[in-house]
Nucleic acid binder design. Structure first.
Length: 123
DNA sequence: CTCGTGACGGGGG
DNA sequence: TCCCCCGCCACGA
């Protein structure tokens, strides 16, 4: 952290790529850190995506990125308003379950055309 | 250059 | 099913 918000300096351009994808997430949908890493062809790890999100520039809907369990990882940050991410998402129509997580099967934004898989159903 | 610290994730117990 | 442990990569000291 402690990075100037106006300088997303990135030699390789990976950070910008992450932000670009996050900007494409529609309101009411979310993506996971691991999903973003996979989209970048695993050039970086999910952990690295989290670090990159740490200094995301204004305009990037950072609240739409959650962990693989559907929870808000920002709640771990000591110097971060607790529950703010959840609040923002609920404002966008995302509903949380009793365990404090959201249903990824419902809210996950999957830009990839069903990678889900089966090579048998391949047309 | 090396070391430690995370907005992570999945495998094993 | 839940929890712990380890690998992962970018950054700052």
């Amino acid at each position: 952290m402690r990075v100037h918000p106006d300088v997303p300096q990135d030699r390789s351009g990976v950070s910008e790529a992450v932000y670009a994808w996050v900007r494409r997430i529609p309101k009411g949908k979310v993506m996971t850190y691991g999903q973003l890493a996979a989209l970048l062809h695993n050039r970086i790890s999910a952990r690295a995506v989290g670090w990159i999100m740490h200094n995301s520039p204004k305009g990037v809907p950072w609240q739409r990125v959650v962990n693989a369990s559907g929870g808000c990882s920002t709640d771990r940050l000591p110097d971060f308003p607790m529950g703010i991410q959840r609040h923002l998402l609920e404002t966008e129509g995302v509903r949380f379950g009793p365990d404090g997580t959201i249903d990824l099967k419902t809210y996950r934004f999957a830009p990839e055309p069903k990678v889900t898989v089966s090579r048998t159903s391949r047309r």
